[in-house]
Amino acid sequence: MYKIILKKNMGEGVNLYEIHAPDIASKAKPGQFIILRVHGEGERIPITIANSDQKKGTITALVQTVGKTSHLLSELNEGENIKDVVGPLGVPTDIENFGTVVCVGGGFGIAVLYPIARALKEAGNRVISIIGARRTDLLLMKKEMEDVSSEVLIATDDGSSGIKGLVTDALRNLIEEKKEKIDRVIAVGPVIMMKAVSDMTREKNIKTVVSLNPIMIDGTGMCGACRVLVGGKTKFACVDGPDFDGHLVDFNNLMNRLRFYKKEEAQSYECHNKEHHG
């Protein structure tokens, strides 16, 4: 059993959970993920680790309530337990001194991006961050990102902070107007955002790494549910990833595979809501 030490509502149905899992915390590196199961009859869902604290023996994960499992998780309070948590899984994000790295994060992907940006800075990179949200009040971890970046660019849908537009607009501006020489881009966020970033940097020939989150079951390479097409080859996100070259990922296939169980998930959520909230 894995105790929830801290739970925080981040808005838009996103909750932050700090979970007691000392074995995972002592090993977790930026870019790795956990698989959790809320209860004994539950499904296994992969979640990228946002932060880990070796001293406290905790890991932090952000989860948006979208279906039955995330809803059940959101009903757990501080001091209550998650049935199963396993990790850290996957290959950590490649951290080296690349030169100038642009870290692009959208929505609660920023939480996962933060430790990566911090590690890149510690490795000697000049880190420029581009973070986006629908509105200012939904923008996560601005302060933290500022601490590890030489520059933070913000994009909001309504223009309430930074530019009015998408993170890709800010990225294009950085490349085309500011003529910034970029050695690498890391993009973490919604699939559609990672696709848009990859499409843009492909034109500019800037190496781009994306963090994928397909459907998984075991998370250790056994089942193959998480397979993604990368450069026309089948890769397993759980053991070969979750980071891949964004220019080679077949994002359309990934989006379609993520949607495959939508109907079943909706039915399950509906049933659950009927039973519990009458």
């Binding site: 296994r44 089942c223 595979r257 495959f260």
Partner: peptide, 18 residues
């Protein structure tokens, strides 16, 4: 890569373990 094409391990794990 199409949805609906499974490895035997995935299909059986869904049904048996899960």
């Amino acid at each position: 890569e199409l949805s609906g094409v499974y490895s035997a391990n995935e299909f059986l794990t869904r049904v048996n373990l899960m």
